[in-house]
C-alpha cells in the first residue's frame, strides 16, 4: 500500500480523539474501509487518528433491556460474544458472515456503519434490530435510531466532528427469533442481497416482524411492504410468498455485472423468503 503522506496519532480516549479531529483528519479503527480507499488515493487524509486501542470503545456490555456494543468492537468479537448471541442472535451470526476471517479480526462495527457501504451487512442488521447508534461530538452524546442513521449512498446522519461510540441493541424477549441470510458477492464478500428479520414475541403471537434489506439499493432499507403483508397474519407458506414478493417495493434496485436489476430483485425475494421461513 502506497498512500499519500499522513500523520498518525493514537487517541487514548474518546475525548482525546475528539480534540484531535479536524477537517483533514480521518478516524482509523479496523481500517477495512478507509485503507483500501487510501491505497487507491481516493482518500488522502492529512492525519489518521487511531481509535482502535480505546478500551471504552471495545467493550460489549449488558445494560438490562439492551446490550451496548462499543464502536471499535471487531466483527469477530461480536460474532463470538455470548452476550450478543443471547440478546439478539442474528447480530452475532450476521457479524460472522462478514468478509473472511482476516476481515472479521480487524474490521469494526462502528467503522462499517460510518462508511455506510450500500452492500455492507451491518446496516440491515441494526435497522432490523431497531438499534440505536450513540455518537459523540464536542457538544456531548446524541442517539440516532438506526432507521434514520443511513441517509444515502455512503452517507449517514453522522456529523464530520462526531464519533460513533456505542451501538445499543434491544434484547429480544424469550420466544423471539432473529435471522440474517446473505447472497454473497464472491470477490468482496459484501452482500448482493442481505436480509435481516426479527420476530418479536413480546409483541404478539403473529405478524410482528421487522425486515431490513441491504445490497439491493443505494442504502439499506426497512422492507415495510413485506412487514405489512405479515402484520397480524399467521406466518404460513402463503403469507411468506406474498410478503417476499414485496421485498423491493418502492426502492430503486442496483444493477452491476454481478447481478442485474432483475436478478437482484429475484434474489431479494428469494432471500427474504428464506429469512422468513426460518422464523416459521
Amino acid at each position: 500500500m502506497i498512500p499519500s503522506k499522513f500523520q498518525y496519532k493514537r487517541a487514548e480516549s474518546v475525548s482525546d480523539a475528539l480534540s484531535m479531529m479536524s477537517d483533514d483528519a480521518k478516524l482509523l479503527a479496523g481500517g477495512h474501509s478507509l485503507l483500501p480507499a487510501m491505497k487507491l488515493r481516493l482518500n488522502q487524509p492529512d492525519t489518521l487518528i487511531d481509535i482502535s486501542r480505546i478500551e471504552e470503545l471495545k467493550s460489549i456490555k449488558d445494560e438490562g433491556d439492551h446490550i451496548v456494543i462499543g464502536a471499535a468492537a471487531t466483527h469477530h468479537d461480536i460474532a463470538h460474544s455470548n452476550l450478543v448471541k443471547g440478546a439478539c442472535s442474528m447480530i452475532a451470526s450476521g457479524a460472522g458472515q462478514i468478509g473472511d476471517i482476516q476481515v472479521r479480526n480487524a474490521g469494526t462495527i462502528g467503522g462499517s456503519l460510518a462508511h455506510a457501504d450500500p452492500a455492507a451487512d451491518w446496516p440491515a442488521l441494526v435497522i432490523a434490530a431497531e438499534a440505536t447508534i450513540r455518537v459523540q461530538g464536542q457538544g456531548g452524546p446524541r442517539d440516532i435510531p438506526a432507521a434514520s442513521f443511513f441517509t444515502g449512498f455512503y452517507e449517514t446522519a453522522l456529523a464530520d466532528d462526531e464519533i460513533i461510540t456505542e451501538i445499543h441493541i434491544p434484547k429480544l424477549p424469550a420466544g423471539s427469533s432473529s435471522t440474517y441470510v446473505k447472497f454473497v458477492q464472491p470477490a468482496s464478500r459484501f452482500a448482493i442481497v442481505g436480509c435481516a428479520v426479527v420476530k418479536n414475541a413480546a409483541e404478539g403471537e403473529v405478524g410482528n416482524i421487522k425486515v431490513a434489506v441491504t445490497g439491493v439499493s443505494e442504502m439499506a432499507y426497512r422492507a415495510h411492504g413485506v412487514e405489512d403483508e405479515l402484520m397480524g397474519q399467521v406466518v404460513s407458506d402463503e403469507s411468506i410468498d406474498r410478503a417476499a414478493a414485496r421485498a423491493t417495493d418502492h426502492v430503486d434496485v442496483l444493477s452491476d455485472h454481478y447481478a442485474s436489476e432483475k436478478y437482484r430483485k429475484h434474489i431479494a425475494q428469494v432471500y427474504v423468503r428464506k429469512a422468513l421461513e426460518t422464523l416459521k
Binding site: 483500501p36 470477490a187 455485472h257
Partner: peptide
C-alpha cells in the same frame, strides 16, 4: 465459475482489483 477480466465498450476494465476479481482460495 469466477474469473473473467471484463471491459466496457470504452475500454475500461470493470474488475481490476481483488475486490471485484475473485481468485479462489481455500474458502471456495
Amino acid at each position: 465459475m469466477y474469473e473473467e477480466l471484463i471491459y466496457d465498450e470504452a475500454g475500461n476494465i470493470l474488475n481490476g482489483t481483488f475486490m471485484d476479481y475473485l481468485v479462489p482460495t481455500a474458502v471456495e
